[in-house]
Computed example of a mutant assay.
Amino acid sequence: LKRAEKQAADVMLENPEYVASNTIVELSSVSGCSETTWFRLAKRLGYSGFHEMKADMSQYLRNQENSDEQSGFYDNIDENSTTSEVAAVVFESSIAALRDTLALIDEKQYTQAVDAISSAKKIVLCGVGDAYAVVKSAYQKLFLAGFNVYESSDQDLQLLSISHLEKGDVVIAFSYSGKTKNIV
Rank of each mutant, 00 (worst) to 15 (best):
L102M: 09
D106G: 09
A87Q: 13
Q112T: 06
Q64P: 01
L104K: 04
E65D: 14
N63A: 15
I95A: 09
N76S: 15
L104I: 04
Q70D: 06
S67M: 15
V86A: 05
L102N: 07
N80F: 04
L61C: 06
I77A: 03
E79P: 01
V90I: 14
E65K: 15
A96S: 09
F91L: 11
N63C: 13
D75A: 11
I105L: 15
S71F: 04
E107W: 03
E85Y: 02
Y74Q: 07
A88C: 09
E79T: 09
E107C: 02
A88R: 05
S94P: 00
Y60C: 06
S93M: 12
V86H: 01
V89W: 00
T111Y: 04
D68K: 10
I77Y: 01
V90K: 01
A113R: 02
T101K: 03
S94V: 07
R99C: 03
I105V: 14
S67C: 13
R62Q: 14
D106S: 11
F73A: 09
E65C: 14
E92P: 00
T111Q: 12
T111K: 03
E92N: 15
E69R: 15
D106P: 05
S81C: 08
S67N: 14
F73E: 06
R99D: 05
E69Q: 14
I77C: 03
E85F: 02
S93H: 15
S84T: 09
N80R: 09
T82R: 02
A88N: 10
N80M: 04
D75R: 10
Q64D: 10
F91T: 10
D78P: 00
L61V: 08
E107V: 15
D75N: 12
N63V: 06
Y74F: 15
E85I: 03
N66T: 05
E85Q: 14
A96F: 01
S84N: 08
L102F: 07
L102R: 14
T82C: 00
D100E: 15
S67G: 09
R99N: 08
T83K: 11
G72M: 02
I95W: 05
L104Q: 04
R62H: 14
S71K: 02
S84P: 01
E92W: 00
E107Y: 07
A97C: 03
E92H: 09
S67R: 04
Q109A: 12
E65W: 10
A103M: 09
S94N: 10
Q64T: 07
Y60Q: 12
D106M: 04
L98I: 08
D68Q: 13
I77L: 08
S93T: 14
D75Q: 11
A96H: 05
